[in-house]
């Protein structure tokens, strides 16, 4: 199970980490109650500052995707069977809106946007 970061990318490293870890969980590669590597170990493997990894883990905890248990480390939470709460739906809408606006500005129509979304969902659910 690998993760890959691009140190020279414009996207901050901690965001790259958050995105990659979320993807691993979404594809089912990382399962609920799986533990994440320790902050020190992941930071030294990637040769980045421990604060960067720590920031990523706290971001994931804030999103309720992982749980940080003091002294024993970070574990993946169960994906709730009740679905997302209102706040999460609101947050996703807010995040997606500018992207959809950008797509329309590029000249995409509804079908094109839907097909992109569908293909990404397929890609993730098929791992």
């Amino acid at each position: 199970m690998f993760i890959q970061i691009e140190p020279t990318s414009e996207i901050p490293i901690y965001t790259q980490l958050v995105n990659q870890l979320m993807e691993l969980i979404a594809t089912g590669t990382m399962k609920p109650s799986d533990s994440l590597p320790s902050v020190r170990s992941l930071a030294s493997d990637l040769g980045v500052n421990m604060h960067t990894v720590n920031k990523a883990y706290h971001e994931l905890e804030r999103k309720n995707i992982i749980q940080i248990i003091p002294k024993s480390g970070a574990v993946v939470n169960i994906i709730p069977s009740t679905g997302p709460n209102e706040l999460q739906i609101e947050y996703i809408k807010q995040m997606v809106k500018p992207l959809i606006a950008e797509s329309i500005v590029y000249g995409m129509d509804k079908d094109q946007i839907s097909s992109i979304v569908n293909s990404i969902i397929t890609e993730i659910s098929e791992g």
Partner: peptide, 12 residues
Amino acid sequence: LKMVRVADLTRQ
């Protein structure tokens, strides 16, 4: 080439 760093999450 894209320059990347890779870590294995299960290595511990």
